[in-house]
C-alpha cells in the first residue's frame, strides 16, 4: 500500500521536477509540502512498540518516511535535535511527536544492517562522539556514484574536468538530484567512482576537480 490517500491540494511533486528550485535546500520548510503517508496521522506511530513484529514494521515505516521526507526536501544529513521540531518528527495536527530517544532508536535502526544502512552517524573530529548528526542515505554513496556517472554520460562530459563545486552548486546541475549535495558526501560518492576506476580526483583542498573516464 503506497501512499493511498494523498491530500488533493498540493500535487505530489517529484523532487527532480521541482518547479521552484530551492536555493537553500537543507532547510526543511521548503515550499511544496511533503505528502505525508496516512500512518503519519496514526497516534501510536509516535510510540515505539514493545512487540517485536509490530516494532519492525513500525521502524521500516519510519525509515521510509524519513527517506522520502529527506529526498523531498533534499536533506542529506539530519541534525537530530533540530529535526525533532520539524514536521518530520512532530505531527502538530494530532499533537504527537517522537521523543529524542525514540528518534535516535529509529536512526540507529536505519543505520543497522536490518535497516539497510540507510543512515550513518557522523563522527566529528577525533573524539568520535556522536554529535547528533547523521547522514540519511536516501541514496547510498554507491547509488550516488551511479547517478553521477549517468549524469556525466548524459551530458557528454566524459574526459573533461569538473570541479566539485560545479557538481553540487552550479546552475547546470540545478535539475539534478545531487544538486546541493553536501561536499563530504559528494567526495565519498566520487571516491566510489574512483575505486571503480571511472574517475580520478585531483587538485588541492577546497578546489578539487574530478575527471570522469
Amino acid at each position: 500500500m503506497t501512499t493511498p490517500a494523498l491530500p488533493p491540494g498540493p500535487s505530489p511533486t517529484p523532487p527532480t521536477a521541482a518547479s521552484t528550485p530551492t536555493l537553500a535546500p537543507s532547510l526543511p520548510n521548503a515550499p511544496p509540502t511533503f505528502p505525508f503517508p496516512p500512518i503519519y496521522a496514526f497516534p501510536p506511530f509516535f510510540t515505539l512498540q514493545p512487540s517485536p513484529t509490530t516494532l519492525s514494521s513500525q521502524l521500516s515505516s519510519w525509515s521510509a518516511l524519513i527517506q522520502s521526507y529527506c529526498r523531498h526536501h533534499r536533506i542529506f544529513a539530519l541534525t537530530l535535535v533540530d529535526a525533532l521540531a520539524t514536521p518530520l518528527f512532530n505531527n502538530t495536527s494530532i499533537s504527537r511527536k517522537l521523543s529524542l530517544a525514540d528518534a535516535r532508536r529509529v536512526l540507529n535502526w536505519m543505520a543497522s544492517a536490518e535497516g539497510g544502512h540507510r543512515a550513518e552517524w557522523i563522527t566529528t573530529g577525533k573524539g568520535g562522539g556522536e554529535a547528533g548528526r547523521c547522514w540519511v542515505f536516501w541514496k547510498r554513496p554507491e547509488e550516488w556514484a551511479a547517478v553521477l556517472e549517468e549524469w556525466v554520460e548524459r551530458t557528454a562530459q566524459k574526459g573533461s574536468v569538473v570541479t566539485l563545486y560545479e557538481i553540487s552548486e552550479s546552475d547546470v546541475t540545478r535539475r539534478e538530484e545531487f544538486h546541493g549535495m553536501d561536499g563530504e558526501l559528494l567526495s565519498r560518492s566520487l571516491g566510489v567512482c574512483v575505486k571503480r576506476g571511472k574517475a580520478q580526483i585531483f587538485g588541492g583542498e577546497g578546489s578539487e576537480g574530478v575527471k570522469f573516464f
Binding site: 506511530f45 521500516s60 521510509a64
Partner: peptide, 16 residues
Amino acid sequence: RFWENWLVKMPFQSLP
C-alpha cells in the same frame, strides 16, 4: 492507550 494495529496493517513503504 491501545489501538488496532495499523502499523502492521497499513505500513508506509513508498520510496520511488
